[in-house]
Amino acid sequence: MDLNADVGEGFGPWSLGDDRALLDIVTSANVACGFHAGDPDTMRRTCERAAARGVAVGAHVGYRDLNGFGRRFVDVAPGTLTAEVLYQLGGLDACARAAGTRVAYVKPHGALYRALVAHEAQADAVVDAVRAYDPALPVLGAPGAVWLKRAEVAGLPVRYEAFADRVYSALGTPADRERPGAVPHDPREVAARCVALAADGRVRTVDGRLLRMRVDSIRVHGGTPGAVAVARDVREALIGAGVPLGPFAGGLDRVRA
Rank of each mutant, 00 (worst) to 15 (best):
A96R: 02
R71P: 03
G201E: 05
G34E: 02
G201C: 12
R150V: 11
P108F: 08
A129P: 06
Y113Q: 02
G79I: 07
S217C: 13
T80N: 06
S15I: 12
P157C: 08
N30Y: 02
A115Y: 01
D176A: 15
D186W: 06
G110V: 07
L137N: 03
P143G: 13
G12K: 08
R20T: 15
R202P: 02
R214D: 10
V117P: 01
A129I: 01
Y168P: 01
G12P: 07
V31R: 03
R235V: 03
W14T: 10
A199E: 15
F69T: 04
A59H: 07
R150F: 05
A249R: 00
A37P: 02
G90D: 03
H60Y: 04
G201D: 03
Y63S: 06
A192V: 12
D216R: 11
A29R: 01
G8H: 04
L171P: 01
E236L: 14
G251F: 00
R177I: 08
G110S: 08
V139R: 02
R177G: 11
D41H: 13
A51H: 01
G70N: 05
P174V: 06
A170W: 03
T27P: 12
L89V: 02
H60K: 06
V7L: 11
V117K: 14
H221C: 00
E120T: 14
G246D: 05
R131Y: 11
A231H: 06
A175S: 13
V55I: 13
E120N: 15
V26M: 12
R72M: 04
V126I: 14
Q88K: 12
L211V: 12
G240P: 05
H221W: 08
G38V: 04
R131K: 14
D207K: 09
R256F: 12
I218F: 00
L140D: 00
V255W: 03
G34D: 00
L116S: 02
Y87S: 10
V127W: 03
F69H: 10
V153I: 14
L156M: 13
G172S: 10
V255R: 07
A227E: 00
W147C: 11
P187F: 11
V57Y: 00
Y133P: 04
G79P: 02
T173A: 08
G172Q: 13
P138A: 08
G240V: 12
V220H: 00
Y105M: 04
L89R: 06
A118T: 15
G240W: 09
D75C: 03
A142N: 07
V146R: 15
A196Y: 04
Y63Q: 05
R202I: 10
S28Q: 08
P157A: 08
G70M: 10
D75T: 13
E9C: 10
F248S: 14
R72T: 14
A123C: 15
V234F: 02
A32W: 00
V61C: 14
E161S: 07
D65L: 10
A136D: 15
P174C: 13
D19L: 06
A21Y: 07
L86F: 09
I25L: 15
A37C: 12
R150T: 05
V76H: 01
